[in-house]
Every structure is written in C-alpha cells, then in structure tokens.
Design a protein around this nucleic acid. Structure first.
Lengths: 158, 158
DNA sequence: AAAAAGGTTAGCATCAAGCTAAGTACTTTC
DNA sequence: GAAAGTACTTAGCTTGATGCTAACCTTTTT
C-alpha cells in the first residue's frame, strides 16, 4: 500500500537531501574559518591537543599508563606531554584514592573550554536561534530531534 | 499590535532554544570523538595544518610572502613549512602568470579533503538524512534555510 | 643601470616528542 | 614479610619541525 507515491516521495527526498547538503556546505565554509581562528590562538602541539581531547572526553580522567597505551608511546613520553599540559594549566594530576601508585589526570575547566571551543563552533548558537521566526524554530527542533533519533538508531544497529 | 501573545511566544521560544541546545550538546560529544579520530591519523604539525587550512579556504591559493605576513613569520620559515606540505602531497607550488617572481601555492585535492574531513564531521550526512521520515526531513530543511538566512543577516549588520 | 621584491638555500638555535635506563613508591603475590 | 610487579618520574640522548639571519638568484620596478 505504500508502493504508490514512493517514487514521487523518493524524488522529493533526494531533492531535499541535496538542498540540505548544499546549505551544509555553505555553513562548513564558515565553520572552517571559525576553527582556524581558534587554532591560530592555540599554543599547543597537535599531540598535546589530542591528549587533551581524550582527557576532556573521558569524564573520569586518564592515567599515564592508560594514555601511553592508547597513544602507542612509552610511559615516559606520555609523562612529558602531561607535564606540558599541566604547565599550561589545561590539566591536573591528582592522587588516585584506590591505588596510590597511579596519578589520575583530569582536564581543567580551561582545558575543557579550550577543546569545546573547537567543536562548539556551529551556527546553531543562542543568539541566532533567538532571532529565528518561531515557525522556523519549531521546524528546526523537529528536524534536530529526528536526526538525533536516527543517529542513535543507526549507531545501535550499525 | 504584536505585544499580545508575545510573552507566551517568548516562553515557547526559550523552551525550544533550550531543547535545541541540549540536542546540540549531545551531538557535540559525537563530533568531538569524530574530530579526535581524524586528528589521530593526521601526520602533520599544527602549524602545517593551519597553513593548509588557509590554503583550502582561499580558492586562489596563497603566496609565500603573503602567508609569511599573515602568520607573522619570516619568508624563509614559511618556505620551509610549505616544503613539508608539498612533500606530503597536500600542496603544490606553481608559477604565477602575472609575476614570475611569485610562486602560487594551492592545496591539492588530498589537502582539501584532509581539511574538510575535520569540519564535515557533523551528523547531517546523506545516509542519515536518507533514512529520515519525509516529514522530518522537510522540517529540517526549513530550519536549515532559516538559520542560513539568519546567519547572513546577522553577519551583514553585525 | 640600480633598487626593490619574491623565493630558496645554508647554517644555526630552540623546543617538543620519542626512546632507554635508572630510581622511587606503592601493591600484589608467594 | 620478602619478592615480584606496577605506576610514575627523572636523566640523558636523538630526531624533526620551527624559527631566525645572511647570502644568493631571478624578476620587476624605478
């Protein structure tokens, strides 16, 4: 019963998908510029940034040996990288209550905001949203919800 | 004449803005993970990446002295960075037809896709969109159009 | 013809990141 | 409780990228 109209629906779907991707392309240009702005003022090496991103992602923080293993470097090397992050005020080392050999490493608020600023750069900011016609805002919310739902669906099954 | 009902509309607006930002927050977590994935396999220094991003952004390409000036380094230093980008196959140098002293530097397709992969990582990909209910897809398009319009508006006046 | 501009190369200094080896402090095992 | 193992730091080293100045070549401008 859904056979009829499918063809026409698929045409509209493809047309909309193309439209959205074209709009997305324009946004990405702005996104690239914003990302570049942030990277220009970033006084870190790429390795330091990578480690910091892991620290920000994992709320429980990391350990020297764990990070060394994930990055495929020696513990001594990772110790040096962490030194520099701590010196920059982006991470802290603290004692692990369970095992006094390990030093738990966490991103500081500064470290977290440094990393988030690289990602948060999308155009869907409060000041943009607040100036949108209400009707469009409702539509955007519906679309976001649907995408969010779909992403969870696909990451479960795929 | 628009005074009445504004209060109620503003409440709904704020509520929707919060909803969208919360959904965006969830997306950003995934975005961060994707960005990290790409950075992990990136065999570049941050300075090389920054220069490459400028090359990708400016379609006409760059010149050694122009790039040196924007980055605040000597021409000799920039020449070295460009050497490494060329060696990696991410940029090319070619003669400038107007002035045979300058060498025009362009990002290669590989360089462009390397940079784009860092930014394109959003969840609004074709395979996600194609699985969305048509109604939601229409709503998303409407929302995207509105945001795109609003961003242009605000960047003109602001 | 002289001066100026764009670019490359050579030579040097500095710093981050990588390693191994040695040492400290704590846990686990026997 | 002694021995073995684990987590981490520090010292000493090598390599590679970035930065500089100085010298040079080529091309354009004056």
């Amino acid at each position: 019963m859904r056979e009829e109209g499918t063809d026409q629906g698929e045409h509209e779907r493809e047309s909309i998908v193309r439209d959205i991707q074209s709009l997305k392309g324009a946004m990405e240009e702005a996104l690239l510029a914003t990302l570049l702005q942030h990277l220009l003022t970033l006084d870190l090496t790429l390795q330091q940034l990578r480690v910091l991103m892991v620290l920000v992602s994992t709320k429980e923080g990391g350990t020297g040996s764990g990070l060394a293993a994930s990055f495929g470097v020696s513990l001594a090397s990772m110790s040096g990288v962490l030194d520099r992050l701590v010196t920059h005020g982006l991470a802290t080392r603290s004692a692990d209550p369970d095992d006094h050999r390990v030093r738990r490493v966490h991103a500081t608020p500064l470290g977290a905001s440094t990393v988030r600023s690289l990602v948060v750069a999308g155009p869907f900011q409060g000041d943009v949203l607040r100036n949108l016609p209400l009707e469009d805002l409702r539509a955007l919310e519906q679309g976001f919800r649907a995408v969010s739902r779909q992403v969870s669906l696909m990451s479960e099954s795929g």
